[in-house]
Design a binder for these strands. Sequence first.
RNA 1: GCCGGCGUAGCUCAGUGGUAGAGCAGCUGAUUCGUAAUCAGCAGGUCGUCCGUUCAACCCGGAUCGCCGGCUCCA
Length: 653
Amino acid sequence: MSQVTVTLPDGSNRAVPAGTAVRDIAESISPRLAKAALAGIVDGRLVDLAFVLEQDAAVRIVTPDHPEALKLCRHSAAHLLAAAVTSLFSGVQCGIGPPTDEGFFYDFVVPRPFVPEDLDAIEAKMRELASEDLVYERQMWPREEAKAFFAGRGEPLKVQLIDEKTEGQHEVSCYTIKDKDTFIDFCVGPHVPTTGKLKAFKLLTTSNAYWKGDARNQPMQRVYGTAFLSDKELKAYLAQVEEAKKRDHRKLGRELGLFTFHQWAPGAAFWLDNGTTLYNTLANYMREVLFPAGYVEVKTPLVFNKDLWETSGHWSHYRENMFLVESTDGEAMGMKAMNCPGHMLVFGSTVRSYRDLPLRLHEQTPLHRNEASGVLSGLTRVRQFSQDDAHCFVTQGQIEDEVERLLGLVQRVYGDFGLSYTAKLSTRPAEFLGDVATWDSAEAQLKAALQRSGQAYTINEGDGAFYGPKIDFDVTDAIGRKWQCATIQLDYQMPQRFGLKYVGADNAEHLPIVIHRAIYGSFERFIAILIEHYAGAFPLWLAPVQVMVLPIADRHLAYAASVRSQVQAASLRVQLDERQEKIGYKIREAQLQKIPYMLVVGDREIADATVAVRTRKGGDQGSKPLADFVGAARGEVASRAVDLVPSHENASV
RNA sequence: GCCGGCGUAGCUCAGUGGUAGAGCAGCUGAUUCGUAAUCAGCAGGUCGUCCGUUCAACCCGGAUCGCCGGCUCCA
């Protein structure tokens, strides 16, 4: 029998007979390794433990601590799910069942939609199959035979998949889970060796999906689940989900009196007093950032004649997302869904010189988008919102500098909120307007700006808008979730559509380029992110109520009122709790409202002209002169100190 | 928009084919208190809305609105 040489990760070689399985290599290294083994990597390719070595190869054994292991186990869990579903229900067709970032799902065509009780039954069946430690076996089927098999079993979707994915192949790869009813699925694998390796999994939810994600196709039922390599990790994940629930901005928004919704204004928030304070604080902060950076603020109309939207191109491409209204003359009007067309008119309202550029127009007025009812969700997806929008009109040669300035702004703003972020550059898509040379130049300038500012970025090839390349930013919140917020988009088309021009140094007319840019994205969505990021415990500079004065008894009211006035005079947002309640009760309420500072005042404080400072985070800090407190608090506001609630702490109480 | 689930007091939730409850919040009174809930009393809902079945509907059926989870889309 011929021998093959196996090279292990430590560089050592060993000769084994050709036909040796990866599993046997693991066994020969150590029984413990064999027991932990989930798969192998042969010459860089992930394979089953049953994979047979026919030639010299570099072999690595994949154990649970390998980066590929998680995906592998989730993929196998998806198969286990499909096996359970086909065993429990008749007339089921399987679609696809991939691993995802958070777990896995599998789509099925079923006679009736799943209900929550079905999930329990399916999960129980999965546990049963897992406990039987059934083998995942890879089988190579002749292609036509496989197609005939799936066709005969009433699974046309699988036949379609085989047709699309294995054109020109003679054999296709299938996996079985041999139960009393053998489950067979078309799949390239690899998989864990047996179902017994899957211990830490949980089904989460069912939902509707469509074959290939296209609503014109057959509706299917999707079952979501998650799986981990250890119970500990699964528990940690579920705890993380719980933590996210506690931080849910919809819940905190109500509890903290920030905003509310009413069914008569779906997708439009009512900002309550506390929320309005927060909103305004963010709006003014943005002005504070943008004005020194050379921006001017404008306000443009909310309703425009259809001609505006026809000129911008939105009438033909975006009309179904706009709220349309009619004037008394029967004139068709549309509520603005974005500011750019209005800003084009501002630019064109007077003669512009190259000396005026860059011209940076900032606007915070509300926008309306008639979003599909099913997509509305809290503050993250609404029909009325405002952006921290701006359009920078620049010359072709100013792009790089302007983008570099923008990158600096993004860094500064996210830094002030304690948010980390990543950037991605999206380049020319397959369908684009304009000429390639202009695109290349624009992309080169964006890259140069990114490099000059030291901003790390990834490239999304071909993901740019049809009118220009862009840089998008994802922020990561305190519990690790990513949100797309800021964007910087180059646009050559809009200025052209509006016939914009500026007079150059050469006394000739030139076309300006516009940079659409936003840092928050929208106030609504950004506030939602901040609420969840801070778990409702806003840093002092953002807290709607910064200080609560708590008198111990009625006789302390006058002193408390004087404390309040002095704190108020220092431009801090302060309230006085003058209810006839015990101090513990008032403290509890202020604590639940996540108010950063409580000032307790009683006989001792009156005698010493002090306040007893209590922080929401650290409890009683002892007494100090009011002026000392005010000075420190003002300093904390000015520095915009960030005070994050760690994700492992109970965020709600 | 599509699929599924849900809609009972301000909030969190019980509940039954014979016109509804609890806790918290609210109000009133008493209590004047030192760092996360003082006590007592009172009040509060045409059970999302409309239509139907029924002697009788919060409960059954249909429609509609909204919310939630997904799909698609997106700031």
